[in-house]
Design a protein around this nucleic acid. Structure first.
Length: 207
DNA sequence: CCCTGATTCGC
DNA sequence: GCGAATCAGG
């Protein structure tokens, strides 16, 4: 494979979108992430413009701004080529949506003052099955597993981490399981158990 | 161990 | 110019 105009274009687009080198390599095919990174540097589009926090871990103390040009081989390298329009980007919303009251049956009497924030999560994630529908064994293993959850943030999830959400998305008591996911499945062993149930099993258990 | 980007250097 | 190997780090 060679860097055709089209492939370079894809590279530039994905890189500016904040995609990782490995993701880009996967998309392009025929190249490794090293190749992508090497090309990125040669193209001089290192330091991702258009603001690309790419946290990956802690909020980093006070992190004022500091784009940190770090290393720029070319003296006048920095200039933001086409980073003009800061597009939305698939950045996950950190916390409180603060608006957009979706649905929520919520027969809330609107009486008490200290009610938990009823802010609905942006998009419904994997449905939390009601306890009554899960087999006792599966439920038990889930409770056990969730004690050992790695408590990953949305950004820390990968193709092989369990993406089962735990806790209330509206509060800081929210994280993802993060344990080793079943190959080809989005969840770990225990969560696959409650996520995927044979229709027959559900029917039998229901009511 | 998983992953990230950065750099080097033989080709 | 290219990218594997390596480095440095979360």
């Amino acid at each position: 494979m060679s860097w055709t105009d089209e492939r370079v274009e894809t590279l530039k687009r994905m890189w500016s979108e904040g995609q990782s080198a490995s993701q880009i390599a996967k998309e392009l095919g025929g190249v490794t992430r090293n190749a992508v990174i090497g090309k990125v540097h040669r193209l001089g589009l290192s330091n991702r413009v258009g603001a690309a926090p790419m946290p990956e871990t802690k909020p980093k103390a006070t992190a004022p701004a500091a784009p940190t040009p770090s290393r720029s081989e070319t003296p006048a390298a920095a200039e933001a080529p086409k980073a003009a329009a800061p597009r939305p980007e698939p950045k996950p919303a950190p916390s409180r949506p603060a608006e957009a009251a979706v649905q929520q049956p919520a027969p809330q009497p609107a009486a008490q003052t200290a009610r938990k924030p009823i802010v609905p999560a942006g998009q419904p994630l994997p449905p939390q099955p009601s306890a009554g529908e899960i087999s006792p064994e599966a439920l038990a293993s889930v409770r056990e597993v969730e004690k050992r959850a790695r408590k990953l943030t949305l950004m820390e999830l990968t193709e092989r981490t369990c993406k089962w959400p735990i806790g209330d998305p509206a509060t800081t008591d929210f994280w993802f399981c993060g344990l080793a996911a079943q190959p080809g499945k989005p969840y770990c062993d225990a969560h696959v158990g409650v996520a995927f149930q044979p229709m027959s099993a559900r029917r039998d258990r229901r009511r």
